[in-house]
Write a protein that binds this DNA or RNA. Sequence first.
DNA 1: ACATTTATGTCAACCGGTTAACATACAAAA
DNA 2: TTTTGTATGTTAACCGGTTGACATAAATGT
Lengths: 329, 329
Amino acid sequence: MTKITDVAQKAGVSVTTVSRVLNNRGYISDATRDKVYKVMKEINYQPNELARSLFRRKSNTIGLIVPNVAHPFFSELTYYLEHYAYKEQYKLLLCNSNRDVSKEKEYIELLKQNQVEGIIMGSQVLEVENYLNLNLPIVAFDRALSKNIPVVTSDNFLGGKLASNLLIKKKCKDLAYVYGGIGGPHHTALLATDRYQGFLEGMKTRKDQLSLQTKEMNSSKTANMVEELAGFLEMNPTIDGVFASSDIIASAIIQACHLLKKAIPNDIKIIGYDNVELSTIVTPPLTTINQPLEKMSELTIDLLIRQIKGEKVSFDNSFPVSIVERGTT
Amino acid sequence: MTKITDVAQKAGVSVTTVSRVLNNRGYISDATRDKVYKVMKEINYQPNELARSLFRRKSNTIGLIVPNVAHPFFSELTYYLEHYAYKEQYKLLLCNSNRDVSKEKEYIELLKQNQVEGIIMGSQVLEVENYLNLNLPIVAFDRALSKNIPVVTSDNFLGGKLASNLLIKKKCKDLAYVYGGIGGPHHTALLATDRYQGFLEGMKTRKDQLSLQTKEMNSSKTANMVEELAGFLEMNPTIDGVFASSDIIASAIIQACHLLKKAIPNDIKIIGYDNVELSTIVTPPLTTINQPLEKMSELTIDLLIRQIKGEKVSFDNSFPVSIVERGTT
DNA sequence: ACATTTATGTCAACCGGTTAACATACAAAA
DNA sequence: TTTTGTATGTTAACCGGTTGACATAAATGT
């Protein structure tokens, strides 16, 4: 590895001059600037960002913690986050928490030690205090960590409501809410999520004519999910309308219905959540709740960077959702 | 941020002693060690890894360049790579190249400047020389950069051959090979890929009784792919066997067939490639060529780390593939 | 009683840059 | 002619750690 002194020597100038060229500071003649750049190219010099970051106390790095990038929702999210981070000259350190408390803890420590300037939490398994004591800019994605940490979400309550409204409009009577267990993206041990609450809200007016089951998924591999869901539907053969907490789960439900020879949407209607690419490629294509993922990602990066700059940002950043009707309703 | 001098002061010991505790070197009494650790916890001290990395000339960071993490194949790959990197105490800097020459170039520079110890290339758009002059350990994933760069692949030739063998066994006559264009994961402008060659090889014995079309995809969004493929199949209504270069494309073909009311597998048979989670969740579930992605990822990390350690590694690392028969054949 | 081992400290150099302060030199402007 | 602006150099401190050399002292072993 060549270093700045090599450049200086070869260009016949002082290290200070090279540094001035590198950082566009002070007076530099065009001749010198060109000469320095030429030498840099010649000896293939690349400034050591570790050293620069150390001195500047600025790493230009963001830590991203997600449960599992392999999950379509998080892989799309990660893609957009990387896109906007890059645009703002930030790089991304990727961490899969696997929803494992100790791994998340270790990763958070690692990120701090590596002087990341902020963390985006797509995962959340630790107790709230752990995040509050972090003393680092954080943005929580679709996960309300606490009142004191900015969170980017979509209107989950409305999403749930839109789902039940549509199912009811389509004459479904026996509803089910299926949500991600440990493996899914939307792990929230309690049912008391906005999504579910919204779904309930939408059922309110016709409550007496409707029934509702809830089902938490245990498996995470899709093949197993299909099996598990087929079992569930077999046990509850009257279910004619399902709201799933993610498109993956909804797709597994579709698959389970095919196994059981239930016709979609005639015998049973299904609504997913997220509107990931997957939803257009299953059969029939999935009716789902769309979150404006790209815009949300953009704001996430923006909020994080503004916090890094020391600005105050709003804690509650909710985006509108919409229902995308496709073939499963 | 607290630093090592703060710890030393508060613990009433010298900085050297704290460093010795931190790095387990030299003689340290249990009493001192405990005291130092206690103080670290008290003042919430985290060693600055930038400073340590700088001194050690070792960043413990790996750069990963993929075309697009949102693509299921790459998101699963990324997941496994992260898993094994973490296990070996390496962290991952994630880069999406978007198959953009200048972005890939910039990212490679950025990675070098940030002192990554090696790069995993899941993407490849630059000319070979660019990678050779890198002077950094590289492993290419499923992409033969050059004879001088270790590559981890699966037996693409066999994969292609297995595909045509099965289609022929199932009495298909009019075959098609559909491969990813600019948006897909397997962009290789030329048809002269092992996969395609293997497919041809499998057709050899019955060449006179078979026909073959090739189709390059132009779109990248699944919705557009479906449309494009429906058009293609409509133009070529006799096609009864399709081999796709990825499961995503295969899934889009399934969808196109539904649109055109072609029965799968009766009217037309489809084989995908990769065996990603997606393949079990489409209808009918996809027959596909399985690559042992997890094992391949593990070896990728292993090869990279061994290069980092200065060991020589084998350039050609091909894994066996197998065909997984599901509902589309 | 003396040699070793253990435990800690002081000091300075180093990793690869950045930067402030100050000095010098030459050119153009007032 | 004096001032000012431009261009570069020298030196040293600094970012936050690590490490080797060397010194000192107490505890332990023989």
